[in-house]
Simulated assay, not measured.
Amino acid sequence: MLGLIETKKEAVTTYDVVQLWGAGAVKWEYVGSIGASGGLLLVWDETVFKMNNCYKGSRWLCVEGVLLRNNFSCAFCLVYGPHDRRGKLDTWEELSFLYGLCQAPFCYLGDFNEITQLEDRKGINSLPVSAVEFKDWIQDMELVDLELTDRLFTWFRGESCSRIDRALVSLEWLEVFPETRLRGGPRGLSDHCPLIMEASQVRGGPRPFRSLDSWFTHDGYLRMVKEEWRALGDRQFMDKLKALTSPLSRWHKKNFGDMDKRITQFEDELKKVDDLTGAGVADGTVEARRKALVSCCKKWYIRQELH
């Protein structure tokens, strides 16, 4: 299940979803944005989850159905919380009604635009009234606010840091998935860190090699091919293609073989910069380093996506 918040799209098309998910047994539901403001999208593999009902609000999107592997009836609700207190109270009331309507183990996830404790926001000494009310709502609903295991904050802007993105699950959910864990993904180019919720660790086989379009993003690729092709002389065309396999393999290993490792290193460095910002020790040098790291990340993200 993939949830996206602030899509800024009034309508979501099949083309949009395939660009995100790829081809396959995919289903989705969305709440359109108002102009360039807001927008929610839930995407899932229909061989894993079968939707029975869908409910939509201006600030939330809920799909209720069955996880086919274990015939588990449940509901997922993607939330984009308002900024003002009145809007938050109205949204929580709607989410409470939704919980009663579905009568199933629930998972709320998204950007709630609210904290629950002092440690969730850098530099504050007291909780705002809306935060106390949000914490009370979670307790009244008997929801579990999953602990974020690898970072303090999920949202950054300048030197401001908060944990406003979270996943809330019902006790019935944890009875079936007691090992549910929540961690943050790399922030990359966004103000927010993506949240990754894992109910269990599933290990599959090796990833298939799908495309080499990424090679064309490297400045030296075409030059290398021309040089190797000329060096093969007057052989038959198919023989030259076969002979080209070895130098291509060596070149790929040298320039793309550690792609994931390089990206991970850049993301780790970005996290260190975020941690410095969160600790209040950021300065112009730190921000300049972040901009340089973002530029490198962007280049390698493009290569990875094409690959």
Results as ranks from 00 to 15, higher is better:
6 E>Y: 03
141 M>Y: 01
132 V>F: 11
301 Y>S: 09
39 G>A: 05
8 K>L: 02
68 L>T: 08
265 Q>R: 15
302 I>C: 09
186 P>Q: 04
100 G>D: 12
178 P>E: 07
115 I>W: 05
234 D>T: 07
73 S>R: 14
64 E>S: 14
108 Y>W: 15
169 V>W: 00
157 R>Y: 04
182 L>Y: 00
298 K>R: 15
259 M>Q: 05
18 V>G: 06
216 F>M: 12
249 S>Q: 13
162 S>H: 09
65 G>K: 02
169 V>H: 00
46 E>N: 12
160 S>C: 10
240 K>L: 07
199 A>K: 10
198 E>F: 02
273 V>D: 08
81 G>L: 05
39 G>Y: 03
299 K>C: 06
93 E>H: 10
234 D>R: 11
271 K>A: 15
215 W>K: 03
184 G>Q: 01
29 E>T: 02
283 D>V: 04
260 D>H: 05
114 E>Q: 13
282 A>Y: 00
171 L>W: 06
37 S>Y: 05
39 G>C: 05
103 Q>C: 13
276 L>S: 11
116 T>E: 08
254 K>I: 08
176 V>I: 12
156 F>D: 00
1 M>W: 06
139 Q>A: 14
125 N>H: 11
93 E>V: 00
157 R>H: 10
172 E>K: 10
44 W>A: 03
9 K>F: 08
209 F>W: 09
273 V>S: 05
226 K>R: 15
99 Y>L: 14
106 F>M: 15
119 E>R: 14
146 L>K: 01
170 S>P: 10
226 K>W: 10
183 R>K: 13
116 T>C: 11
243 A>S: 13
18 V>R: 12
95 L>D: 00
144 V>H: 11
11 A>Y: 09
37 S>G: 02
214 S>V: 11
87 G>W: 07
25 A>N: 15
101 L>K: 14
288 A>V: 04
31 V>Y: 00
192 H>E: 04
163 R>V: 05
199 A>N: 14
275 D>W: 07
173 W>D: 06
243 A>N: 06
307 H>E: 10
38 G>F: 01
31 V>P: 01
128 P>K: 08
188 G>P: 07
200 S>K: 14
184 G>S: 15
157 R>F: 02
5 I>R: 05
5 I>T: 08
306 L>W: 06
30 Y>R: 00
69 R>F: 08
164 I>W: 06
142 E>W: 02
64 E>F: 03
67 L>D: 07
107 C>A: 12
185 G>W: 00
263 I>K: 03
231 A>N: 13
78 L>Q: 01
38 G>K: 03
178 P>L: 03
66 V>M: 12
225 V>F: 02
169 V>G: 01
110 G>S: 02
162 S>P: 03
43 V>S: 07
149 T>E: 15
15 Y>T: 14
28 W>L: 07
164 I>L: 12
295 S>I: 05
302 I>G: 06
191 D>G: 07
